[in-house]
Nucleic acid binder design. Structure first.
Length: 688
DNA sequence: AACTTGTCAATTTTT
DNA sequence: TTGACAAGTT
């Protein structure tokens, strides 16, 4: 492997001998290159067995990409005939490694064989149900997601349910204190783990069982962590356990790009690295290969105003490009129109659509944009949002499989108990739950009893339940023959899923898409069964399926389309042309970061501060390679009221000589400005 | 099960 | 002002 085309710090990171290493990798500084080259170096030059290397990421996509790049490096080295070595690497998300550990050590933990993994939707189901019991009548006043956020933060801080201390006078905290212990007990009762458990339970396991700890502390001789600034406390502890024996940790990240602290990520992990891992070597990658000096200067000028950071300035030897275009529009419609027309102009001059991205703070800002892009006939693709909710049909089939494999999985059972509709209403479910509770048994047992006329149910309901029990028994029997594919097909037939999908869909294409989704699931399951047959393997597969993000299934990168995404969604991406829109106070920085504790229902522990918003702006600015537009509105409707908008403080932090100001409002009418800050801009608008 | 009506909130969402 | 969501109505 040739390390000659790496710069000095990159080379140092790649060749670093052993012990803890932190690579502070600025935006566009070749961070992925360092990780992949380091792995290739370990395998090829140092002869490390790839099975003893673990690389941890936050997304499956990042893991897959990394594996691909390492495979190419190893292949390209000519030192080995086949790229099979890359396949032996442990590369995945924190959660998938946690799940692997739990599956291997299931016995030590005392987890049932058929445990399942609950995703966010499943978790919400649990919380909603508990709320009905705990706060019957007023349960709707509380947002389940907000309670889950609190539970999640508590879990990751290893605060046990019984120790949860509600903040004084915080209603949500008080509800959480009531729900959290019940939630955890319910999960265990359902033989289910949530995402947080996939990290915290392995940590607990490693801490409490010396033999298990020994096994995993020597499983990997080298551990690499990508996006280290996004690790939360429990993930840090997991890493610590994994490298406890040798300290061979290579953490790569950028404290200036930490934008997930609201989810428990702690940017201080980058700052405290030397304290967490004594004797650590720190390498800073600040040469940027992505953006023009002007763009970098703008980004540097903004991030410089954050205090709590390690501190670095990106630099580049690239030739300079055009100034940053700062645009003021009258309102969001005008702003969107400007963006659309500017894109049309650029593509008219030969720029490809796919080289352009429009970034915004909140999804809601995409509305006017989509409208304008459609009008101007600019092809675009939006990432994020919740297009994956269409996967309902897939989740339904999975729920059937889960119930067949694990009868304690109550949330899955409740999902399918009346789907497709079979006349089992809420009242019947309530009765069943009641009888299950009274007899200390599972909902499934109650269903089976009810189906044979056991409970206080009417014949119609008993019949309906019998239908469900028959479908599940049939599914189980079919699965036991080993032919999972026909088992699932049989199930779909029995419950007439296609019929229901056709009836529920508004159009033929919509129902066909859903049927195709189900078919895709069947194909995947069949594929998996070929590799590793049996119930146990299917269960394992279903668990990993809960972790599989939906985006990786169908992200067609092929089309030549403008990308629309939130700033969070843009992390890790780069584009020749970037539009950052809505650069206004209350939008970026978001209003909620400006009012410290006022009714902050969703995020108790996280002190909302502007520094994370500044990092978001920084992430946005550093996505641009050649051309950067920052746009804002003079006025917009807010909660129905037309209000004047103040330019973002971040905009004012960019040195004026780096910008070219354009006021698209000036053409039609006198520009509308508000507050003192805009006086600054007015001055430039007139000199423009 | 499909409708209407009322209430409430209004970021970001890797797993 | 919109919109999502859920309870109440037919």
């Amino acid at each position: 492997m040739d390390a000659g085309h790496l710069n000095a710090p990159q080379r140092e990171a790649v060749l670093h001998e052993g012990g803890p290493l932190l690579v502070v990798a600025g935006a566009g500084s070749g961070k992925t290159r360092v990780i992949t080259h380091r792995i290739a170096h370990l395998v090829l030059e140092r002869g490390v067995d790839p099975r003893h290397i673990a690389a941890l990421t936050f997304t499956n996509k990042a893991a897959a990409e990394m594996r691909g790049r390492v495979a190419r490096l190893i292949k390209g080295s000519g030192r080995t005939a086949e790229g099979g070595l890359a396949r032996q690497l442990t590369m995945g998300t924190f959660h998938s490694l946690g799940l692997t550990i739990l599956q291997r050590e299931r016995a030590a933990l005392g987890f049932p064989r058929g445990f399942v993994v609950y995703d966010t939707a499943d978790q919400m189901g649990v919380v909603r149900e508990l709320m009905r019991h705990v706060r019957g009548g007023e349960d709707r006043r509380y947002d389940a997601r907000s309670i889950l956020t609190r539970i999640s933060l508590a879990k990751n801080a290893f605060r046990p349910p019984e120790d949860y201390q509600p903040a004084d006078g915080d209603d949500y905290d008080e509800v959480t204190a009531e729900i959290y212990p019940r939630y955890q007990a319910a999960l265990r009762g359902f033989a289910a783990l949530d995402f947080d458990d996939l990290i915290t339970e392995p940590v607990r396991l490693l801490r409490e069982h010396a033999d298990v700890r020994e096994r995993w502390a020597s499983a990997f001789s080298h551990v690499l962590v990508d996006e280290y600034q996004d690790t939360n406390r429990s993930q840090l502890l997991m890493v610590k356990e994994l490298v406890a024996r040798h300290g061979n940790l290579c953490a790569v990240g950028d404290d200036d790009q930490s934008i997930y602290s609201w989810r428990g990520a702690d940017p201080r992990h980058i700052q405290d690295f030397e304290r967490d891992f004594p004797g650590a070597r720190v390498v800073v990658l600040d040469q940027n290969y992505r953006s023009t000096p002007t763009i970098l200067a703008s980004a540097n000028a903004v991030i410089r105003n954050n205090t709590d950071r390690r501190g670095k300035e990106l630099w580049s030897t690239r030739p300079d490009g055009p100034p940053v275009t700062a645009v003021t529009a009258v309102d969001p419609e005008a702003e969107a129109k400007f963006v659309a027309q500017e894109i049309a102009r650029l593509t008219g001059d030969g720029r490809r659509h796919r080289d352009i991205a429009v970034l915004y703070r909140s999804n809601i800002q995409s509305r006017e944009l989509e409208e304008a892009l459609r009008t101007t006939r600019v092809p675009y693709v939006m990432v994020g949002g919740q297009q994956f909710y269409e996967r309902k049909e897939v989740k339904d089939v999975i729920a059937y499989l889960r119930v067949a494999l694990s009868e304690r999985d109550e949330i899955s059972l409740r999902r399918i108990i009346n789907y497709p509709a079979r006349g089992v209403g809420p009242t019947t479910v309530e009765k069943l739950l009641h009888s299950a509770h009274a007899r200390h048994t599972t909902l499934w047992r109650a269903v089976v009893d009810g189906a044979s006329g056991g409970g206080e149910l009417r014949p119609a309901q008993a019949d309906a339940l019998a239908g469900l029990v028959a479908a599940i028994s049939e599914l189980r029997a079919a699965m036991d023959t080993g032919d999972v594919q026909s088992a699932v097909r049989g199930l779909i037939e029995t419950i007439d899923l296609h019929g229901d999908l056709r009836a529920a869909s508004t159009s033929l294409t919509a129902s066909q898409r859903r049927i195709d989704n189900v078919e895709a699931l069947i194909r995947q399951v069949t594929e998996q069964q070929k590799r590793k047959p049996g119930r146990e393997a299917l269960l394992e597969y279903l668990r990993f399926l809960s972790l599989a993000s939906d985006s990786e299934e169908e992200r067609d990168d092929g089309g030549d389309r403008v990308l629309l995404t939130t700033l969070h969604g843009a992390k890790g991406l780069e584009f020749p042309v970037v539009f950052l829109i809505g650069v206004e106070e209350e939008i970026l920085p978001h209003a909620r970061s400006l009012m410290p504790h006022a009714n902050d229902v969703s995020d108790p522990d996280h002190v909302s501060d502007v520094s994370e918003e500044r990092r978001l702006a920084y992430v946005g600015l550093t996505r641009a390679q050649e051309m950067l537009y920052v746009t804002r509105c003079a006025s917009r409707r807010r909660h129905g009221r037309q209000v004047l908008c103040t330019p973002s403080r971040f905009l004012l932090e960019i040195p004026e000589q780096l910008m070219e100001l354009r006021d698209v409002a000036a053409e039609s009418r006198e520009p509308v400005h508000a507050g003192e800050l805009s006086a600054f801009f007015q001055k430039f608008a007139t000199t423009d």
